[in-house]
Every structure is written in structure tokens, then in C-alpha cells.
């Protein structure tokens, strides 16, 4: 097996091209793959179909790519807090598909798990159900299909050369699902550790789901809405 370890973002993201579908982990700005996003911004590839819960927020994350008009389609659950996306959506520059967040997660999981479709009550009786097959179980449900991608870029706190990953606190969110669902999953880590340093019981993503991994640098780890206890 050739090594999965790459020197940096430039080396790991060598084969991206115009028109790819691209999953990006993170909830708001929490757990986003900062280095890979900056490398894609530098490359300037266009017509990206971005699949991410927020497509960036507050001008950061994938919003860097929105500002450069690199994203032409977006699949996400939430636009609020992302003025770049809202503006380009209303101007018709980005084709936005809104998906209920639980359905979004499960469609990505389904793509990674080999599930060809599933029925869920979420969205029944709303605009989301339009054009979808309906079926009544104990409650009325709609058919949802898997959501895969060409590439996934994700960030983990720790990872080893096989691609075993460990996430910190709520930074995990969509990343393990996207790791399973993309044809090529590229991981950046705060710490690249030796095999065995992440105890087998504590592996959040087994390495088989990861194709490339590199040590990230210069993390901003921005806090979007800081709230503190009164002291």
C-alpha cells in the first residue's frame, strides 16, 4: 500500500478540478478543514458543488470560496449567519438545495454505508416533500436517497498514518459521515500521531474510510458566538 500521508495541503489536494462535488465537515466554523479550504481558494477551481451544513459562516470557512465565486451549487441545511451564501442564492449565482439536517446527515451516512434509500417523516407535508415518493408506515414518510461526493475535506484533532481519527468535543459533527461517503477523503489533523496512540476503543473513524492525511498548520479555530458565564 502506498502511504496515505502527505506533506501538506498542496500535496494532498493535487487532483481537484473544476466541477467536482466536495463535502466539507464542520458545524458553522466548528471543526472546519481550514487548510484544505485555503488551498482550494489558492487553486481557484470553479463550479464546485459544495455539500456542507452551512457552506461557511460569518465570511469564513467555505465562505472564502463563495467570495471568489468558486461555488456554483450548494447542498446544505442552513443559510442563516452566512451573508455570502444568502446574497449569491438570491442573485441566482449559487443553486442552493436545502435539506433538513437529520436527512442531510442520514443521506451522507447512507452513501457511505451502502444504503440505497430510506423513508423518513422529516419534511412530510412541506416543500421538502415535493416530487418525492410518499409511503405511510406508522406515520407518513418520504423517500430520501443517498448523497455522496467526489471528495471530502475534513479536519480531526488527531489522526495516524492509517487514517484512524479522533475528534475533540463537538468538532466531530458531519465529518465521520463525510469520510465514509466520498470517493476520496482528505483529512487534515492538529496532530499526526503514531499508530496505536489513538487507542482502538477511542477511534472515531477507522482508517479504512480515509485516503489521504496531512499535518495541518496555523489553525485559527475561530469562535463564532462567544458567550461567557457572568462572573
Amino acid at each position: 500500500m502506498t502511504s496515505k500521508v502527505y506533506a501538506n495541503a498542496v500535496a494532498a489536494l493535487f487532483d481537484l478540478r473544476d466541477g467536482i462535488s466536495l463535502m466539507s465537515g464542520g458545524f458553522g466554523l466548528c471543526g472546519i478543514p481550514e487548510n484544505s479550504i485555503q488551498e482550494i481558494r489558492r487553486q481557484g477551481i470553479k463550479n464546485i458543488h459544495a455539500i456542507s451544513n452551512n457552506i461557511g459562516n460569518s465570511g469564513r470557512g467555505l465562505a472564502w470560496l463563495l467570495k471568489q465565486k468558486q461555488i456554483s451549487a450548494a447542498t446544505c441545511s442552513y443559510v442563516g449567519g452566512n451573508p455570502d451564501l444568502e446574497e449569491q442564492m438570491l442573485a441566482g449565482e449559487v443553486q442552493v438545495t436545502l435539506v433538513p439536517q437529520g436527512t442531510f446527515s442520514e443521506r451522507i451516512r447512507a452513501a457511505g454505508m451502502g444504503i440505497r434509500g430510506f423513508y423518513t417523516p422529516a419534511g412530510y407535508g412541506t416543500l421538502v416533500a415535493e416530487g418525492k415518493e410518499e409511503r405511510v408506515f406508522d406515520v407518513p414518510c418520504i423517500l430520501e436517497l443517498p448523497l455522496g461526493a467526489d471528495f471530502a475535506i475534513i479536519k480531526a484533532e488527531r489522526g495516524d498514518r492509517f487514517g484512524n481519527l479522533w475528534f475533540k468535543e463537538t468538532a466531530r459533527n458531519f465529518s465521520p459521515l463525510m469520510a465514509m461517503a466520498a470517493r476520496v477523503t482528505i483529512v487534515e489533523v492538529e496532530q499526526l500521531v503514531e499508530l496505536g496512540e489513538i487507542e482502538p476503543e477511542n477511534v472515531h473513524v477507522p482508517g479504512v474510510f480515509v485516503q489521504r492525511i496531512y499535518q495541518g498548520v496555523d489553525y485559527e479555530n475561530a469562535i463564532e458566538i462567544p458567550m461567557y458565564a457572568e462572573q
Binding site: F27, G28, F104, S105, T170, N173, I223, M227, A229
Partner: peptide, 23 residues
Amino acid sequence: PTLINAGKETISVRKGASYFDSA
């Protein structure tokens, strides 16, 4: 910075808390 709620606000957790993926 990695501990937030769905409103993207910083939070803390109690004893017995757990973290998991979105699915």
C-alpha cells in the same frame, strides 16, 4: 472553540455528557 451548541454559541457540559456525530 470546539464546544458549541446548535446556535454556534460557546457552552460547557455537565458530568456524564457525551459527544457523537450528526447521524
